[in-house]
Computed example of a mutant assay.
Amino acid sequence: MAGPIDNVVTSGTFNLDGGSFDVDNNVWIVGNDSEVFVIDAAHDADAIAQAVGDRRVKAIVCTHAHDDHVNQAPALADRFSAPIWLNPNEKVLWDMTWPDRQPDADLHDGDVLTAGGIDLRVLQTPGHSPGSSCLYSPELKVVFSGDTLFQGGPGATGRSYSSFDTIIESIRTTLLTLPGDTQVRTGHGDSTKIGDEAPHLEEWIRNGG
């Protein structure tokens, strides 16, 4: 029996502002034996498709549009006849990678997405990028944080279209209001818990990220 959460780690590059960086990405597959979401289709379409297996992909859900999170979104969307969902404020970043193809539907704060009996509530958390989104499942006690919150601190804000003050506000007012035992499944690296990160907010602010 699969799921409700499967993780595929893929490797490739993140490219922005003229730099290229080697990265390992967490791709999350959420649902049940019949139907799933793919969260952040990164680097290796075949590996992700293998993990999906014969399940229906209801959508390719993008937490944000940095190229390392969306570079396999169209390939997987075509492979599984699934739509791509993304917050519209990410258009400037999406167009850098996919200028000739647009997402199929918009993600907005408060939207509830359902696949395989699992509800994911969209939390708007700008800062790492203009339209960064997290996906919260109260039932699973999990939030998929993209690159907004990691084990040890907020996502990077030193590149174009990012803001440290904005990401701190998003974390303070949205993510840290979730129950402390909520698991944080991140876009890169190890998972953490809201309760483990909350005590360090003021330290992050003092250190400027």
Rank of each mutant, 00 (worst) to 15 (best):
G127L: 08
I39M: 13
N87L: 01
D67A: 10
L149W: 09
I60M: 14
V143C: 14
K91P: 00
H69I: 02
F150N: 11
I39C: 10
R56M: 08
D24F: 11
G116H: 00
E90K: 11
P103L: 08
P88H: 13
W94V: 10
D106H: 12
T97E: 13
I29A: 07
E35V: 08
I118T: 12
T157C: 14
F150V: 06
F144K: 09
H108T: 05
G31Y: 06
P103M: 09
H69K: 07
R121A: 13
E90V: 03
W98L: 11
S133E: 04
T114S: 14
F21S: 13
D78F: 04
P138K: 14
L86P: 12
G31Q: 04
S129L: 01
T97V: 11
L113N: 11
N25K: 15
N89F: 11
F150T: 05
R79C: 01
Q124R: 13
L140D: 04
L107M: 07
Q124S: 15
V27N: 11
D147H: 15
L140N: 05
E90C: 09
S132E: 15
G110T: 11
L86T: 09
D104I: 10
A49N: 02
A49Y: 02
L113D: 08
D33T: 13
K91G: 06
H108C: 06
T114G: 01
N71S: 12
P126H: 08
I39G: 03
S81I: 02
D95P: 00
G116K: 06
V112F: 01
R121D: 00
A115C: 08
A49F: 02
Q50D: 15
P88G: 11
I118G: 00
K91L: 12
H69S: 10
K91T: 12
V30Q: 04
A75Y: 02
G110R: 09
W94R: 10
V122R: 02
F37M: 06
G117Y: 08
I48H: 03
I48Y: 01
T157Y: 14
A75R: 14
T97L: 04
L113H: 12
D106V: 01
S34D: 15
V61C: 10
P126T: 03
P126V: 05
Q124E: 15
V36H: 04
G155A: 05
R159C: 00
A82P: 04
I118C: 01
V122F: 03
N87E: 12
A115V: 03
L113K: 11
A41T: 06
D44G: 07
S137I: 03
L93I: 12
A47L: 11
P74G: 07
A115K: 07
N26L: 06
N25F: 00
V30L: 10
D67R: 13
G110V: 09
N26Y: 01
F144L: 10
E35N: 09
D100Q: 13
L107Y: 07
S133Y: 01
G153N: 09
N71T: 10
A47I: 00
